[in-house]
Every structure is written in C-alpha cells, then in structure tokens.
Simulated scan of single mutants.
Amino acid sequence: MMAVKKKRQQKSLAAGRPPTIQRPKSITRTATKALINKHHLLEKRKQQAISKGDKAEETLITSEIDSLGGLERYQEASLQGQRHDRGGDSSRVLMQWLETCLSSHKEACGEQLRMLEVGALSTQNACSKSGYFDIERIDLNSQEKGILQQDFMERPLPQGNAEEFDIISLSLVLNFVPDPQGRGEMLRRTTQFLYDPGRYITSLPLSPSFPCLFLVLPAPCVTNSRYMDEERLTGIMTSIGYTMTESKTTQRLVYYLWRKESKRPVKSSFPKKELRPGSFRNNFAIVLK
C-alpha cells in the first residue's frame, strides 16, 4: 500500500501523458475558486506595481504568485473547472449553437472552418472532437502537445487570408487579463484575425453567424460588477464591430457569440464608469480608449 501512495503524489500537468494509475482526488470546488480568484487578484496588483515602477512590490507579488504554483497551478485549477461535475467544457455550448449550420455547411462543401482557440487547455474539447474545425490552439503556458505557447497580444497580425480565421474562441481568458484597458485591447485585436464578413455572403448556412467570436466569462463579471453589465458589454462590442447572435447565462458562467459585421467600427470611448454601486460587487471592468 505504501508503494501505491508514493505513486499517487501529485505532479505538474506539464509532466506528460496522463498516468495509468488513478489520479489523486481533485481539489474541491471552493478551493479551486479561491485559488483562481487569488491568482487574479495578485496579477492585478502586480500590473499596478509595474505601472507605478515599483520593482520591490513587483518582486514581492511575483514571489507570492510563485508560492501558489504560478501559472501552471492556475491552469490546473482551470482544468479542474472544466470537469463535467463543475460545469464541463464550455465549447459544448458553442457546438449546441452552431451544430445545425456547421452540419449543413459540411454537407454542402465538406470544408473545415478555421478556428483560433486562445487560452487552450486541452485538445480534446467538444470543438476538437466535432470534426468541423481546423483548430490552431495557443496559450501562455502550453500544457500539452498541439497547443502553441504564445501570447495572443504578441501574435503577429495576419498577412493575408491564409492567416485569418472563421472563429476565435476566448473562453475564460479575458478575465485573466490584469487591467481593464488590456481587456479592451484584446477584444479589439480579435477583429483583426477574423475573415471579412463578405466572405460568407454566398454561404447561406454560415452567413448568419460567421465570422465570429465565442466569449466566455465568469458570470459575476457581468451580473455583479460595479463597472460592467450586459448593456455596457454590448455597447463595447458594437463599437468595435460585433453584433451579439447568441447568449446564455448560468450561475457560474456567461456565454456569448458575437458576429463581426461588415460596417466599420464606431470610434467610441468607454472609460471605467460605475454602473451599480454596492460593497458586495466586484471590480471587473473593460476600458476602450
């Protein structure tokens, strides 16, 4: 029995293939949520220290993040959050929305659509298994083969159609960006990686939904923030050229599908503005300048 217990010591997700023996019992939902929230808070404080040029504070916070296990530990918690008993794979919602049009498209021409999955944690989600997509996956800290280690904000802009996509998945990524302006810039940047909507004029199954952005956030970012609600989010997305085609809200998450429009984006400014006061609310915000 002692030998078995030694084999069941927890390992980093980067260690390689899943072990053949039973994995250690996962951390609880409460512990997972606490770890993710703590990581977000520390990253926010670190960004504030960087903006102030406070090297001592930056070093201190970096050490605290490392003591929690760093980005790898955060991703492990995020992977646990994708288990079926914790809400499961968010891309299943996307497949429910798009199954009919994707099936019709495949029957008509048999071509796969190009997807860019930002913040990919697995190559075995619902989109990957559907057969409808040719997927390019990127993440800040790749956890398995098939996921390119890359920062989306530093990814070179497309130099032609061959480097553009039909759909971008941004699932539980935007909330990890430490500052509101950075979130706004990430959303704006997604439009530069999508095909021109005119591409789909002759494709009846795809034209109502593509090209598009699949956006998933923790529900409190929209339902319980001082600075963000769905009306505000819709205003921001409309200003950069998106129209909402699907949405779903659960206790834990909010899911959106945004179609990129042909019309030119509106030059609007969205500063940080309190919409709903209350000491029990969070400070999630998106800023566009």
Rank of each mutant, 00 (worst) to 15 (best):
D54C: 03
D85L: 09
K52P: 04
N282S: 02
S247K: 09
N175L: 06
T20K: 13
E231W: 15
L253F: 13
P180E: 04
E154W: 03
K272H: 06
L217N: 11
R155S: 14
P208M: 12
K38D: 10
P24T: 01
T62V: 00
A126H: 15
L79W: 03
S142T: 11
L113G: 03
N282L: 03
G235T: 11
M244D: 04
K267Y: 02
A126W: 13
Q181K: 12
Q47P: 01
K248M: 05
S122D: 03
T238Q: 14
Q80L: 15
F280P: 02
L71M: 07
L233E: 14
Q112A: 07
N161A: 12
C127H: 05
R188F: 13
G53A: 05
P218S: 15
R83I: 01
I138S: 09
L121G: 14
Q150T: 07
F165Q: 12
T32Q: 14
R189M: 08
N282I: 08
L194H: 03
S262K: 01
Y132C: 04
R17V: 06
R226I: 12
Q150E: 15
Y255I: 00
E111D: 10
H105L: 09
F133M: 02
S209E: 08
L257M: 07
L148N: 12
F152Q: 11
L233K: 15
E76V: 08
I168S: 09
H84T: 05
